[in-house]
Amino acid sequence: MEEVVSQFIALEFTMKSLGVRSEKVSPTISSFFENVQSIAASASHSMVVKNEENGATSLWTFGLNDYGQLGVSIPETEDELSIRLPDTRDQCTQSSSNLDASSAQPLPSDAKNESRPEGGSENQKGDPEKGVDYRLTPVLVTSLSKHKIIRISCGSTHAAVVTDQGKLFTWGQGIYGQLGLGAVLQRYTPYEVTTLGSEVFINDVQAGSFHTAIITSAHSLYTCGAGTHGELGHGDFKNLYYFTMVSYLKKLKIVQVSCGRYHTAAVTSGGSVYTFGAGEHYQLGHGNDLSLSTPKCIDIFKRIKAKIKQVSCGAYHTVSVSVCGQLFVWGTGKEGELGLGTQNKVATVPTLNDIHHDMSVSKAYASDGCTMVISDVGKIWAMGANAYNIFDQPTDQRAD
């Protein structure tokens, strides 16, 4: 329930990012979302998993669908279902030179001439002349109705889910390889990732802005997608179009991972935190602004004997929670997302944020310019940018 309450606030941000202005700008109970199992949201789209009476689950999505990230478009032909680049693994491990990264639009010379599916649903609210496709109310992803979903995650323009059978499905934009399906530029409906083999059971998935990470039942970490900042952790700055094990961590048991805009953080079974990727905003927590293409352990946690149980990556900052309920923050906090006061807008290493001396933190979530914290007694604390009235009420809220 804690995760549902904390991420529900992100859903409201999604709706407001679409230009939807509701009179109820504070968290409001939705009768539609009864029996909610989990929620995921990005700045453009959201996903909600509901538990059904028969023990099954249903996945509902809403928000922008300009890259098929809602998983509900129905192309007229198979060619429109998936746009692909030439599919060779040698080419897929390189940074593609014929993609326009600034506009995020595919520019392959031999790509199929594909037109975006036209919506015929009453729920589709868009501007056909501008090619805008979005849904203002939740729609059911019918292609996953036969699967029981246990994990979900939203990237900037892609989505991923894990089933109780350890299967991974991805869809949306794949221009950087973030779908893990090879040289697929875009998929409008969920597609199973099978390149790891049937013997690999997937426990968790986390989508960053343009990259994706998964944890297997063997506690191995795999990544794919944009790697130009080193966020994939493979020792280079290349994009990867297939999930590849982070070999630098293969001797460790990874129990949790979080993907930010351009960086990644992983927690081991021993409570250590490894970070890699962009570091120009000190979001890696190593005391400098260097970017890293291989995972590096944050030493300060060992020195202060703090074991970490959870980590969350925002755009330019990172937060973590220790097994003792302590909150640590680091990175850039120009919007107040570190919660360290107006005089402390940068933390180069993990810094204790003692919100209240008598409060123990259960979980913390970092986003683009803001942070949500949940105490062990169900209180929600928020800090950072409030451009969309994300925390319209006082920041001390109880998650009843």
Rank of each mutant, 00 (worst) to 15 (best):
T194W: 01
I215S: 00
T216M: 05
G225D: 12
D204I: 03
Q206K: 13
V205E: 09
T216V: 05
A226R: 14
Y176I: 02
V205H: 06
L181P: 02
S217P: 00
A218M: 12
V205A: 09
T194R: 13
S217M: 03
G227L: 00
T212M: 09
I215P: 03
T228L: 15
H211V: 01
Y191A: 12
G177S: 04
C224G: 07
T195W: 00
G225T: 14
G208N: 12
T216N: 07
T212R: 11
V193C: 13
T216R: 03
G180W: 09
Y188Q: 02
S209W: 14
T223E: 05
S220C: 06
V184T: 11
H219W: 08
T216D: 06
I215E: 00
G225R: 10
T216Q: 03
T228R: 15
S209Y: 13
A183T: 10
L221P: 04
G227M: 00
A183P: 03
Y188H: 11
Y188N: 03
G177L: 03
C224A: 12
I202K: 02
T194V: 13
G180P: 09
C224Y: 01
H211W: 01
A207L: 08
G208F: 11
V193D: 10
S209M: 14
F210M: 15
F210A: 15
L221K: 03
I202S: 06
G182V: 04
Q186I: 08
S198Q: 14
S198N: 14
F201I: 10
T189S: 08
F210E: 15
L185V: 13
A183Q: 10
Q178V: 10
T223V: 05
Q206W: 02
L185G: 11
G225P: 14
T228P: 03
H211I: 02
G174P: 01
T212H: 11
Y222D: 04
L181H: 14
Y188T: 09
V184Y: 01
L221G: 04
A213G: 13
G227R: 01
T228Q: 15
S198V: 13
F210P: 06
T195N: 08
D204A: 05
L221R: 01
D204E: 13
Y191G: 06
A213N: 06
S209L: 14
I214T: 06
G177M: 03
G208R: 10
G227K: 01
Q186N: 09
E192R: 10
L196N: 08
T195E: 08
T195C: 05
G197S: 08
Y188P: 01
L196P: 07
G180Y: 09
S209P: 02
I175G: 04
A183G: 13
T223D: 07
S217G: 07
T228A: 14
G182Y: 01
L196H: 07
T228G: 15
V200L: 12
Y188E: 03
I175P: 00
P190G: 07
E192K: 11
V184N: 03
T195A: 11
L179I: 14
F210L: 15
A213V: 05
T195F: 00
L181C: 09
G197A: 09
I215Y: 00
